[in-house]
Design a binder for these strands. Structure first.
Lengths: 173, 173
DNA sequence: GTCTATAAAGTGATAGAC
DNA sequence: GTCTATCACTTTATAGAC
């Protein structure tokens, strides 16, 4: 429900009703709404293996691909709530910032920080547009297709220059 | 306030207090909270001039650049609220979909729709990360720097293939 | 035009019965 | 373990006084 409605519009009573129990019982077990949210929206640590610019591209693409196959609802709850609930925003940053600096170290250029931020922004833009906004083709496109289109983008951002697309592997004609 | 807090957390009372008047007066003039929101969050039509794949890239980049210089708070109000307020989501779609199809017609490839969606997702990801989430370097980077980094990305998406970056330094060797 | 008073409904949270 | 009852508060919205 947090993923579908966001933090404020999800009520304890509605959660209890959906669970077939009384609202008091939910409070009894979780204490506060914030704790309930934090239990429902626990994010995996999501460590990225290191590597150079070329490798980080594939790591990021693989990570995105798995999220395009089936984004866990806990992540969606955080994403949906992060713009209005400060706790969700903080949690999101806590998950995003270590990844950001890890990507930064993999990029050789001087503006690595900005490039890493852009890579992050693209990933989140795609996830939000696919799952939360359900806008355009992104809502139902095949993950592979999305990944292949993004690969050259990621490469120019992560390596500092345009590479003549040696990728397009996996039997791309 | 809608831009800073989102729809649900912005109360009529708080708006009235900030305006130095009584909450009843706000209601008297606007009738409902939804109407107040729609007045505060009116979006410009934002027409994109047409053009081919190469041109649409510069149009999109110019549009993004102007939003990076100073995104209007009305847009931010819609963006902040669109994930939790259905009215804001609808308004956002109404503004985004015509642009999406316009970009689509400018792209020559068969998967033009998906490419257009990706371009849209990147733009929104950047805006959200810069203004709403204030994450990483994107929060304070110079618009020009962001635009230049994104240009090759946009080109590969809009034209269908990697172009040898005529707009980039490094001699294009 | 501005405000007071208040209605009507919903919220998170507490205390305690069974 | 589950629920009833209720508190204390907030919200949007209405009606009407000045």
């Amino acid at each position: 429900m947090f993923a579908e409605l966001g933090y404020e519009r999800t009520t304890i009573r509605a959660v209890a009703r959906a669970a077939g129990v009384d609202a008091g019982l939910v409070m009894h077990y979780y204490g506060t709404k914030d704790i309930l949210f934090s239990r429902a929206a626990e994010l995996p640590a999501a460590e990225l293996p290191g590597g150079g610019g070329e490798e980080i591209v594939e790591v990021l693409l693989a990570s995105l691909a798995s999220r395009l196959v089936g984004e866990p609802v806990a992540s969606l709850a955080v994403l949906r709530s992060m713009l209005t609930h400060s706790d969700a925003a903080e949690r999101y940053r806590a998950a995003a910032e270590p990844q950001l600096s890890q990507i930064t170290t993999a990029i050789p250029t001087e503006d690595a920080e900005l490039r890493a931020s852009l890579l992050s922004a693209i990933v989140h833009g795609v996830i939000i547009e696919r799952y939360l906004l359900r806008l355009g083709r992104l809502a139902d496109a095949a993950p592979d297709e999305i990944i292949e289109l993004l690969r050259p983008c990621f490469q120019t951002l992560a390596t500092g220059e345009v590479s003549p697309a040696p990728a397009r592997p996996a039997g791309a004609s």
